[in-house]
């Protein structure tokens, strides 16, 4: 759950020479483990380098971002918009291999990952990014209509999913939440995760994870577009409990996926 604390290290971002200079932020951003806010709420003030971007209003150390997308116009467009919104993009990459290289060099906290890459699948990139740095948060930002790919990336460890039609506001909020270690649960992702649990009920595999009734209830409400606060109100739960339920549904799937990979490796004699 620790956000990495190596933020002094800066790397040569492929886009951003400016914001990379001089430590981007002093402290860790890990608000998720402690306080119960929806927002990461990192109000630790005053990084001097934040002023390199005129539009940067939020002086609290913004998370370092890597944007991975094979479409140059889109990639540069979203990078510019995020930078304008006060989120420094420390690097960009056009394919999976490059993403892994740039991630090693720039140590991003959050990777915005398009699933449609010319070389590697989104799930594979996610797995390798996390293997190289378990503290990195992978946020899938992809066109709609690739549901299975999204689900694969999320079970491989991605922390959330937004469609490319999401507003910049939503993307910024999602990046901040991801940096804080929260799962970014859009209604679309909730629908996918719910569907996956429904599938697992009838799947031939043994020891598949199940949802508790409460978790199912919460997940359905997220899929119906209710905010955590509205869900908490409706079910008479604390906001924090709702958040934990949602996080659990994802964690169980990811653990199951990991266990399956290990089992497969052992069976193949690779373990």
């Amino acid at each position: 759950m620790d956000a990495d604390a190596h933020s002094e290290k800066t790397g040569p971002g492929t886009v951003d020479g400016g914001a990379g200079s001089g430590g981007t932020r002093p402290g860790t951003v890990d608000a998720g483990a402690g306080s119960g806010g929806t927002r990461p709420a990192t109000m630790d003030a005053g990084t001097d380098s934040a002023g390199t971007r005129p539009e940067t209003v939020d002086a609290g150390g913004p998370p370092r971002l890597l944007v991975v997308d094979d479409h140059p116009i889109w990639r540069d467009g979203i990078a510019d918009r995020l930078a304008a919104a006060g989120l420094p993009v420390v690097g960009t990459a056009g394919d999976g291999a490059q993403a892994l290289r740039v991630a090693r060099a720039t140590r991003p906290q959050v990777v915005l990952l398009d699933l449609h890459l010319p070389d590697l699948g989104g799930a594979e990139v996610t797995r390798r990014l996390l293997a190289a740095d378990p503290s990195v948060r992978v946020l899938v930002l992809s066109a709609s209509g690739e549901r299975q790919d999204v689900l694969d990336a999320v079970t491989a460890g991605a922390t959330g999913y937004l469609t490319k039609s999401a507003s910049l506001e939503d993307v910024v909020a999602a990046v901040r939440a991801a940096a804080a270690g929260e799962a970014v649960f859009t209604p679309g992702l909730a629908g996918l995760v719910l569907g996956e649990y429904r599938r697992l009920v009838t799947a031939p595999e043994k020891e598949t994870p199940r949802l508790t009734n409460r978790e199912t209830e919460v997940l359905r409400l997220v899929a119906k577009g209710l905010t955590y606060r509205e869900i908490a109100e409706r079910l008479v739960l604390s906001h924090r409990t709702v958040q934990n339920h949602v996080q659990n549904t994802l964690t169980k799937l990811q653990l199951h996926n990991k266990a399956q990979l290990v089992r497969y490796a052992l069976e193949q004699g690779l373990g």
Binding site: H71, I73, I78, A143
Partner: peptide, 17 residues
């Protein structure tokens, strides 16, 4: 889907901003 639509989506979002 991978090209034109994404650029149109970008133009539309940027324009609104």
């Amino acid at each position: 889907h991978d090209s034109v639509l994404q650029v149109l989506a970008l133009v539309s979002a940027r324009g609104r901003e």
